[in-house]
Design a protein around this nucleic acid. Structure first.
Lengths: 160, 160
DNA sequence: CCAATCCCGACCAAATCAGTACGGATTCCT
DNA sequence: AGGAATCCGTACTGATTTGGTCGGGATTGG
């Protein structure tokens, strides 16, 4: 069901936590060590390390080495999208592999206008993911549900 | 990378094939057996059977048993969305499990406004998937991009 | 110089996925 | 009626991916 891996989930959790902390007025220290973050989020420490490294490599976080080191956000949370985070952790966003290279199963050319249309789906999802900023993730939602349901729900729901 | 399972991919392929065949003027037989479809698409027969069964159970296809039996679309391709198909094959669409029940890892309540916001992402993706009909998948793309951008981008929220 | 911290690669266990096999039920055709 | 074709369902297995671990090196601050 259009699964995002747990790693990406955790990554978003971490980033949200960082953004949230930054937004708080009492945010004394915005640079935090991997161990701190692991403790604060309750996630296993090595996994947190790995994630932070990936996020840092994608330049979403800035790493400071040595004693008293740690990670901190490079940009403003408003300038980081969920798509950015997922992409940083899981690589380029694509629903299928059939898109980029020669797939041997896909031998029936006649029905493969499908492939080009799959690209549309990918694009749609990418758009959706890019439209949600980290800032939004870090702030408790207000009346977003109304905006949502009015525009979105129509097609999928009915079982019959 | 927001992967859809190969089964769902195949499912969409099958449905697209069916829709395409139905749309053609020379579409003599719109009911086709699982074996036929397997041969025509080049997919392994048992897998095709399984998929067709799932799609039939979701009432996207109609099954006719016995000799000379087979499957055919229940509704018009325009009334079937990609979201429908994926949902039929992979169950309810949700990026994460953390949404519906008590997750033990999620013990840090303080940072869990994230969870409610995850729902937002799910909704966005569902919208994207629901906005693409099987009919569109079966026809070579024309001016679909306009519909896309108009239908998707505004609802979820501006980045700034 | 020492300790804390980030950094990196390789490795392992577990979950999930794709596919298979077999047996049963239903309908058509002879 | 009988047999063949077809859909239906469950259970099982092999392979891929994922989540997580471990150990050692590089870099900075005290």
């Amino acid at each position: 069901m259009i699964r995002v891996t747990k790693l990406a989930d955790y990554g978003i959790l971490l980033m949200t936590w960082l953004a949230w902390r930054k937004a708080r007025p009492g945010g004394d220290e915005l640079r935090r060590s991997a161990a701190d973050l692991a403790r604060e989020t309750g996630l296993p420490a090595p996994t947190v390390s790995k994630l932070l490294r990936l996020l840092s490599r994608a330049e979403l976080l800035e790493a400071q080495r040595g004693a008293q080191g740690g990670y901190q956000l490079t940009r403003d949370p408003a300038g980081i999208t969920v798509a950015n985070i997922i992409e940083a952790i899981e690589g380029p966003i694509a629903l299928m592999d059939c898109l980029d290279d020669t797939a041997p199963d896909c031998d029936v050319q006649s029905l493969c206008p499908t492939r080009t249309n799959w690209d549309r789906i990918n694009q749609a999802i990418l758009t959706a993911l890019s439209s949600i900023s980290l800032e939004e993730m870090a702030t408790p939602q207000r009346g977003w549900r109304e905006r949502m349901s009015s525009a979105l729900t129509p097609t999928v729901g009915e079982t019959s």
